[in-house]
Structures are given as structure tokens and as C-alpha cells.
Design a protein around this nucleic acid. Structure first.
Lengths: 241, 241
DNA sequence: CGCGAACTTGATGTAACTCAAGGCGAGTGG
DNA sequence: CCACTCGCCTTGAGTTACATCAAGTTCGCG
């Protein structure tokens, strides 16, 4: 039933760093199972420790924090290949919640085996640090965008990042990609109101930069999008856990 | 001249997790030297890879990103005990710059030895992951604050975080702590204009919550500050590298 | 057919921005 | 030792990007 790590479709993508034979064997043992969930399922909850970690095999999710007044900050979108639950694994507590937005398949790992990773296969321990550093890098970028830039650029930034990642995963059809989130999610990610997000999306569409309709994102002018978004990132291969 | 790790004053603080004898011996070898810098010194630069990593022994610094239009986002304040340069060490490129704001003493490590850490002493590799996870946790919190909350709460949040950390390092004198940054830095950290930051600080002072003058931060009403800041964090010991 | 969820659009309000000016202490030099 | 500058902080006035409020529209679904 469960996919064998050797046959994992994600592993073949250039987006991810290559596995040694040893690492592959180790991962097979590390993986304790697979899980299928439906949209709306809470995978992890802010402030709790979970006995499990996951890697998204397919489907998408949201990382978000809920504040006392009920407002939400979306921290990031979760794509296939993303590792979920690192904070709980090493710190004992999640700083955010994770909720599925589509049907998902997830690899399941035991928190108790975490230490084993570092002890028996340092390469994999390094990969975990690498992942955390990538996330830190991303969050710095997100913080700069949310903190400093106007709505039009914020949204262009988010769209560009989303599209680039989707493309690297082979989820795109040319300049189109499936975008299973709601406008409210995007608004919560960028610190904008839903109404203003909607109006700004309409402006991007009127400007023939990008269009988002019926769960599909279409880039109309990639160069312009990139220049509005001020893309700085050089694409780097990321580890797959 | 250089401080021996065994005599490192930071190690004794409860803020930091304890070292095993083995770890201590390893760190002594890992540390290649010490460095003294003056305010304004650039320790690392956004987009570059550095052959060195640092741990702040004393003094403070800023992590920040500069955007194309010249605006700055301060990512975080660097305190004694903070590890600097993890991103460059594992990803090959820094997402932000780091600049000293006071005189600083720094432990210096070689990037080339990084892999050694994981291979020869997995505990230290784990500590690095732990640190990265703590930073990720913090950035999520910062993102939520910058994205969702009004200026009054943003500033209260920053002040509370700053004070708590300074207290854990023994830098405080009761409810007073040295705050060597400029209002502009705080503004850049929270995505506010300098003028508005200044006016909001004045409001916090008028409300007898906190006062910042002449490089010293004085908390006037800690309970109220905490309730405005909506403190959620439970203090956790952090690794020292 | 009625209902709810998501998206859209217009009108109005306000938190935060920019511009502009002035105060104040520290350093410098005539 | 006073005049000048310079960095930082402060305060007022006017503007604006974004928020909130308030209706719709569309569409899938029981």
C-alpha cells in the first residue's frame, strides 16, 4: 500500500538533493507509515507536542498561527516534499498549526526516532539542519515583504514564489498552476484584508500580470511579475526527509 | 587572550543547555579564534557566503535585509550567545546581513569544520538544528506580529521580548535594561515608520507601561506590558554553540 | 428552490505614512 | 568658549494605503 522510499516520485525531481544508497536504506526504516487526510484536517497544533512528524507526499497544507484576538497569520504554504513538525521534534512545541487544504498523503515518522537520525546517519541530521535553515531564509524574506512592501508587490511576491515552487515540483502546465487556497489564506499570509487582497488581485489581472480564477493561477507576464516581486532568490536544491 | 570555552561566562547561565564534558572538549577544538569588532562592522553580508561563523560572546548586533528600493527589514536583534552564519554554513548563502551595533567579542569558527560537527559529535549537530528551529519559531512569531497587529502592540511585543532575553542573560538591572539600538532599528524591525514608532513609544510612556531614554529601557508596568504584548512563549533553554 | 461559501465591488473611515520643522546633546574647530 | 554641524529624537499638519462596513453576484449543493 504505502510507497516504498525507493520508488518515491519526489526523489527523482531535481528540486531535491540526491540520496546515497545508505540514506535511502535509512529512510525506509525511519518511515513508520503513511497517512491519508482530507481537507481541513489538523495535522499539528500550535503549542502542542506531537509524537509524529510528517513529510507531505502529495497535496497541500497551510502553516498558520492564531492570535488571541482571533486573527490568523499564515506562515507558509506546505508543498509536497515539505517536512512537517520539525519544531515539535527538536523543541518540544510547535509554534504554529498545520492544516490540510487538499487531500494529502503523508509519510509518517516517530519523534522518538529523531535522535537516531543524528546518531546513526549524520548526513540526514545535516539535511534536517539544512531544511531548517531554508525555512529560516524563507521566513526572513516573508518578513521583509510583509513588513516593508505595498500590497501590489506583496501579492506579486507570493504568486511568484508559489509558481516557482509549483513548477519545480512539476505541478504546472506551462504558466498555469493549481492553487487550492482561498483568497482569505493569501490575505492572512500577507497581512492584508480580504477585500484589499481581492482588489489588488483584480489590479494584477487588469495589468495582465497574473490571473487567479477557479483554483487555477495563470501567469500572464512572467517577466513583469518577477520585476514587481523583486525576485532575489537563486534556486537551491533542498533536502527531502 | 581568548577566553577558554571551559571558562565561558555564557555557559553558566540557565538560559543555555548544559554541555557534556565531551561537548566542551569538542567546542574548544571547533573554536578557531576570537574577534573584536566595533559598532558598524559588517560581520556577514546578504547574498554572500562566508568562510566563517561566529558566536557572540558579548555585545549586540542586527540581522537585516536590504530591499531593492533601499528600505530595510530588521530580522532580529543579536544577543550574546547567538550563533551567526548558520545559513551560509549549510546553504552557502546568507539571506540577510549582520552588523554590530556595539563593541562585540565573537568566537570564530570555520565553515569547513561544519560537517565535522555532525560526523564526530551528533549532539552538537542536533544543537544546531535546535537553534535553527528556535529561530524559525521566533520568525513565525515576528511575522504574526508584523502582519497582524497594530503599532502599539507591535512595540509592546518587541520590548517585552527584548527585556525577557536581556534578563535571561543577566544584562538587566531590575526592570531596566541597556538598549543600544536606535528607534529607526525598531521601526525597521516592525515595519513602521520612524515617526510613528516615536509617537507610539511616547504613548507607551504616557500610559506608564515602558520608557526608553538614553539607551536604557525601563519597564514601568510589566504585567500590563505582557498583556498588551500577548506573550505566549514559554521560556526554553537554548543551545550554545 | 433556498442556502452557504467564496468572490466582487462601492462607500466610508482611520491607522499609519510622508513632509516639514525644531530641539537637544555631543563633537569640532576657529 | 562660543558658533557650527551632525545625529538622533520629537512634534504638528496633511495625505494615503489600507481597513471596515455593506451590498451584491455566482455557483454548487441538499
Amino acid at each position: 500500500m504505502a510507497i516504498d522510499c525507493e520508488k518515491c516520485p519526489l526523489r527523482k525531481l531535481e528540486l531535491f538533493t540526491a540520496f546515497s544508497v545508505e540514506e535511502l536504506r535509512f529512510m525506509k526504516a525511519f518511515k513508520t507509515g503513511e497517512m491519508e487526510v482530507q481537507p481541513g484536517t489538523h495535522l499539528l497544533n500550535q503549542g502542542t507536542k506531537s509524537p509524529q512528524m510528517f513529510t507531505a507526499l502529495s497535496g497541500m497544507a497551510l502553516r498558520y498561527k492564531t492570535l488571541e484576538d482571533g486573527s490568523r497569520q499564515v506562515i507558509s504554504f506546505v508543498f509536497p516534499g515539505d517536512f512537517i513538525g520539525l519544531q515539535a521534534a527538536v523543541m518540544g512545541e510547535m509554534g504554529h498549526s498545520v492544516e490540510a487544504v487538499t487531500d494529502m498523503t503523508l509519510c509518517v515518522f516517530n519523534r522518538a526516532d529523531m535522535w537516531n537520525v543524528f546518531r546513526t546517519l549524520p548526513e540526514r541530521g545535516f539535511a534536517l539542519t539544512h531544511l531548517a535553515a531554508i525555512e529560516e531564509h524563507f521566513l526572513g524574506d516573508a518578513l521583509a515583504t510583509v513588513g516593508q512592501r505595498p500590497a501590489y508587490e506583496k501579492i506579486a511576491w507570493a504568486i511568484e514564489r508559489y509558481h516557482r515552487r509549483a513548477a519545480a515540483l512539476g505541478l504546472t502546465d506551462g504558466l498555469k498552476s493549481p492553487l487550492p487556497f482561498k483568497q482569505q489564506h493569501l490575505a492572512d499570509a500577507l497581512g492584508l484584508s480580504l477585500v484589499h487582497t481581492n482588489k489588488t488581485l483584480a489590479r494584477l489581472k487588469a495589468d495582465k500580470v497574473a490571473e487567479w480564477r477557479d483554483g487555477t493561477l495563470a501567469i500572464l507576464d512572467l517577466d513583469r511579475l518577477k520585476s514587481i516581486a523583486q525576485v532575489d532568490e537563486t534556486a537551491v536544491a533542498r533536502p527531502l526527509i
